[in-house]
């Protein structure tokens, strides 16, 4: 049985930059706990001696050769930026 408490919800919300109101924490904790419980049913399957599976199909990682084939699209890259200056993304100051 998993048990996600309100502190854990608050912490992972913060790490994911999600704003949760205090009254949302308890329902979220309940929901997350039940999701994890549901997934944990998989623990009943005996997987001794079975290699972890990386893909449901027999696929291999595709490699590419080292060649410049992309880039030089500064306009496209910056198109959705709320603010741009001199070709840079301009964001609120984030300094240590």
């Amino acid at each position: 049985m998993s048990n996600i408490n309100e502190d854990t919800v608050a912490r992972i919300a913060r790490l994911a930059r999600l704003k949760l109101e205090p009254e949302q924490l308890a329902p979220m904790a309940t929901e997350l706990t039940s999701i994890l419980d549901w997934v944990e049913q998989l623990g009943e399957v005996d997987t001794d001696g079975i290699e972890p599976m990386a893909s449901p199909v027999d696929a291999k990682l595709v490699w590419r050769d080292d060649a410049v084939s992309d880039g030089n699209i500064q306009d496209k890259v910056l198109k959705n930026a709320p603010r741009r200056e001199y070709g840079f993304f301009a964001v609120p100051k984030v300094i240590e």
Partner: peptide, 8 residues
């Protein structure tokens, strides 16, 4: 140039 060597 800034952001010139950037792909999507």
């Amino acid at each position: 140039e800034p952001n010139a060597q950037v792909s999507l």
